[in-house]
Design a protein around this nucleic acid. Structure first.
Lengths: 237, 237
DNA sequence: GATTGAAGGACGGACAAGCAAACCTTTTAG
DNA sequence: CTAAAAGGTTTGCTTGTCCGTCCTTCAATC
């Protein structure tokens, strides 16, 4: 029996710098609305402690984010760093981004399936109620894709939080960021969003009944929608 | 509606150095048997090019791995760097490792479910046959846990390869490395391994029939075994 | 047996990232 | 008015990484 060596072992090592990772994390959180427009970030001295980086490194990141218009700072007592309102227009997805769309969808599938199953096992009553609320908000915004997308993200991230796995929450936000870049420029007629909502409800119902596999199935159906749309628009990844 | 801010946004930034990441990658590949004992690594000058790092950095990593006894080098023409045979005894899992066991299992669940579903969609005939072979090898080694574990890893990584997603393969090897550290010191009687084998067969059958959800279910059942064992032995994560 | 080429091994200079600890400037709450 | 709390600035140091060069070893080949 021959042993096929996965070439992934010798694939390039991607060592992100602390600066890059910070820009990525905060930038994504802002674009996803996890840090709402107008809200205040923790003070620099506190934030760098929380992130485990030096203040100068954090400031580099904040400078980058302020130059791209995602954030602004005011000085003096009572000042601070705030998320811009309104946010700057998002720029079109890069060619590299588009070339990797399938990998991105695959990662998303993995995270979301895992989250669906674990949430079904672990979600508490309060969390379920909150998720239902979010689904309600979602249904009320089928006419405004920006608002819809934001509520959608909250729902998915909320589901991840219900698993009580910080790692999954982190991955989920990362993946949602990548997906947002991909789908920002795709038309989403209200009918599509409505069917998406129906899938959300089925998903939440399955989670509430602690039926992990039905939740997984609902999630898979849900994700397939986006994937088919992308497959129609983009070349194979 | 209040917005719960995921504290994951401000969680510490972990910026691994290229050196650390290389040790981790090669070390894991060796421990998992992806780089078989006795096999030769690519020449340093080639390997550093493939990994996208400087030769001095690679040498740091190789020095570390040779000091830990995972690798040795011979000089001169026809020489090279080779995986040790036999491998050094693995050291017991660190307390931090054990404290994170649940997060590790959660990550594994996500990856493996995703892999199961995608493999069911995409696995080709040849790949399926190879996976069946691996399952056969697995069944022949229920008496020797070391051999069993190695074959098990090959099967799971092989499944990941069948998805044709390099990202999933990378994550799978990473997660399998973490799992190996966790379960190395847990007794696995042949009966347990036998029932594990039955689950493998069910999984592969579902994949062959392109029944994604049955594959997911089979995988979930399979993973639950380890998780229950760990839950019995370790405090809550 | 001499030569050659391919491999690991070692060193030094240049550069960039990151850290730490100050100190400066602005603004407002009290 | 003043103290406190925030962002803004500067400086020096440490460490990781890269690149290039040269050395050493030793089997294959002529």
């Amino acid at each position: 029996m021959t042993v096929t060596l996965p070439e992934a072992v010798f694939a390039p090592v991607r060592s992100q710098t602390a600066f890059e990772e910070t820009v990525e994390r905060l930038g994504t959180a802002i674009k996803l609305g996890l840090l709402p427009a107008g809200s205040q970030l923790p003070a620099e001295r506190e934030l760098c402690a929380r992130l485990g980086i030096a203040r100068s490194t954090l400031r580099q990141a904040l400078t980058a984010l302020s130059q791209s218009g995602h954030v602004f700072a005011t000085r003096g007592r009572g000042g601070g760093t705030f998320v811009s309102d309104p946010l700057p227009p998002s720029d079109p997805p890069s060619p590299e981004m588009l070339a990797q769309w399938r990998e991105t969808c695959d990662r998303r599938l993995a995270v979301e399936l895992g989250v669906a199953v674990l949430a079904a096992e672990r979600a508490g009553r309060a969390e379920l109620d909150r998720l239902d609320e979010l689904a309600g908000a979602l249904e009320r915004s089928v006419e405004d894709f920006g608002a819809y997308r934001q509520a959608d993200i909250r729902l998915h991230v909320g589901l991840a939080e219900a698993t009580r796995s910080t790692e999954l929450v982190r991955t989920m936000t990362e993946v949602q960021g990548a997906m947002t870049d991909l789908i920002a420029f795709i038309a989403h007629p209200p009918q599509v969003l409505a069917s998406s909502n129906a899938q959300h409800r089925r998903l939440l119902a399955a989670v509430r009944e602690r039926d992990a596999m039905r939740a997984a199935q609902a999630m898979a159906d849900h994700l397939q929608g986006t994937e088919h749309i992308l497959a129609g628009l983009l070349p194979d990844g």
